[in-house]
Design a protein around this nucleic acid. Sequence first.
DNA 1: CTGTTAGCGCATTCAC
DNA 2: GTGAATGCGCTAACAG
Lengths: 261, 261
Amino acid sequence: MKNTPVTIKAIAATLNVSISTVSRALRDMPEVRAETRAAVQRLAAELDYQPNQLAKNLLYSRTRTIGVLMPNLSYHFYTAMLASIEEAALAAGYSLLVCQSNESHEREIINIQNLLRGQVEGFLLSVARDSTDYEHIARLTRRNFPLVLFDRYADEINASKVIIDDKGAAYRATEHLIEQGCRRIGFLAGPPNLLISNQRLLGYRAALVQYGLPLNDAYMLHCDLTPEDARTQTNRLMNLPAPPMACLWLATALPTPPCSR
Amino acid sequence: MKNTPVTIKAIAATLNVSISTVSRALRDMPEVRAETRAAVQRLAAELDYQPNQLAKNLLYSRTRTIGVLMPNLSYHFYTAMLASIEEAALAAGYSLLVCQSNESHEREIINIQNLLRGQVEGFLLSVARDSTDYEHIARLTRRNFPLVLFDRYADEINASKVIIDDKGAAYRATEHLIEQGCRRIGFLAGPPNLLISNQRLLGYRAALVQYGLPLNDAYMLHCDLTPEDARTQTNRLMNLPAPPMACLWLATALPTPPCSR
DNA sequence: CTGTTAGCGCATTCAC
DNA sequence: GTGAATGCGCTAACAG
């Protein structure tokens, strides 16, 4: 059960050298006689010695672990992000402590606590749908704790952010539809308390205004990111007396719709 | 930058008590005078004292962390599993170190190394598509390292397994199609070196035999789990002179097909 | 009720 | 070249 009973001390004892010599030999330090080093390394290999990372962690106060907090991994967007994050982390010799908030504010708080307890060196996080206040995150930034937000963010949070130009992108997408000849364009936005929803909505509205099209509230619906609600809201749009000729979705935030083919 | 400069020792110093008293007070041990405990706890709260988990880890040789190795999180099946695993882990006070092998044998080996280094207390893993030998996993079981396989397994691996009756399920599914009147049934199996692929294939074949239907090799294709190959193999089936009237997929292992609606 | 000591496994001074 | 001693932060005997 015990993972690694074989310690540096044990090696030192059987070889009749000191602990520090073993430590040095194992790390190929120059000031160690070749024969001694060889002997130590041979025995270490034989015993399948594994340095105790826990001890090193304490000594260096480092864990080489990054906490990742995702709203929901059933959105393919986040899964794809996770794959990339993992690749970069692996290349840098880091591991990932991964949690999902399931879009819940409370879960987000609990998870942050939990990750902190696991002594992550920093956080990557995308805020949950149901998070409205950000005190739990502010606590991190006040401590100057390494933190990067991605995709979903909030102006109140003073941290590095990896985001897109939500407003501009929505503007250009809307513009494209207008240029294709669409005059009635629907917009299925994400939850109203998510900043990216509103930014995109702004872009959409700006484009309509710019092109002299009417702003019709019936064409702008919010969706709470569940497949059910996505369906409900879509139906509401399509059942309008004059249904939209095209519709923009907050695609990255929507769960992959069940595929019926 | 330093996460927790405030240690138990610092508190002890400012309060003029011993380190152990602080330790005891903080953990609500009975043998501490009420006033002392109150004073300690007040100061600790004020300073936002956080016990150094690294030190505890070393002391107890425990990390409360479980390693999870998934073939690929873009398969919705694994994402769903991860959500459940996480829930159970959280409830038990554990964190998850998550890795993806991306179906690669080498990545699987590297990830196991990596997770071990992160000092996980045990593993949950589903073998990668490209893993043919299992020496890297045997190394774990030989050490008696806590390990549970799920979904994908191998007979050579001597560990607890959370799996389904692949053969029986495929048998019943095939039987169902036969009862619906299908006489030509296709079977799109997973990669040949995945045991679950073969188990399901066995069930399919057994059902055909049982019902006196011919075994036609042209109806049994392997698919390497990429969307591209899934499409290719499906086309091969459908372009047969007498294409199958129905087809069984190794659904859990296939990536969610891009949804075009 | 409280303080002192020892030790988790390792790296790192500082001596010799 | 090598060894003895110190400490990372904390808990657990063992005294008082």
